[in-house]
Amino acid sequence: MGSSTQALICLKDVQKVFSTDEVETHALSHVNLEVEKGEYISIAGPSGCGKSTLLSILGLLDSPTGGDYFLDGKSVGQLSFAERAHVRNRSVGFIFQSFNLISDLTVFDNVELPLTYGDTRAGERKQRVNEALERVGMAHRAKHLPSQLSGGEQQRVAAARAVAGQPLILLADEPTGNLDSANGETVMELLGDLHRRGATICVVTHDPRYAGYADRIVQLFDGRVVQEIAEEKILEMV
């Protein structure tokens, strides 16, 4: 891994180009972004502007085709598949729009999943899973299968899974997209609560109602950061 910078996340001139036979699609163009430890940012923009691509690169689900990405001071932009898996496991927690719980595993097993891919001992795993479930208020449903839960409950379990590994950052891709407004509100409250406890959070959302939870909004358009709105402005907007 390369040289370090101060911010927890630092993207320098990051590009993502998808190439098919004769066509090049620029999903991200020259993106520069810094996220401080403990910061809560919201990535916004219209459909197809590159929000999810940016989040995937932040979460090491994908690699940039240009530029560099520093996570906690280390360059992670061009790691191998296995190295990225290792960093994902240690440093990143995901919350997806469609929850992405494994239907054949119980709530407990789903939350335990990232811990099983690390080297956490069984006793500690159990303790961390229980704590995470307590934090999202789902400890009483530990033995249920995802299909036995409502959408909101499933997303809370997904949030518990995201925090169980004690990652450096939490990435949420449209976490309220599949929820009604009441459940959406609950999930956003939960993220706000995690933030207040010190979590660094990046949320992709295009719902202005939830923008107020963030310290900063990063506005994307056609793969470029067109505007960064600070907390004071957001409060004015809200």
């Binding site: 994902r88 992405n100 999943l113 891919y117 690390g118 590994g165």
Partner: peptide
Amino acid sequence: EIGIRLAMGATR
């Protein structure tokens, strides 16, 4: 399911 596992940090 495999995608989720990989996202959670499982190696190939």
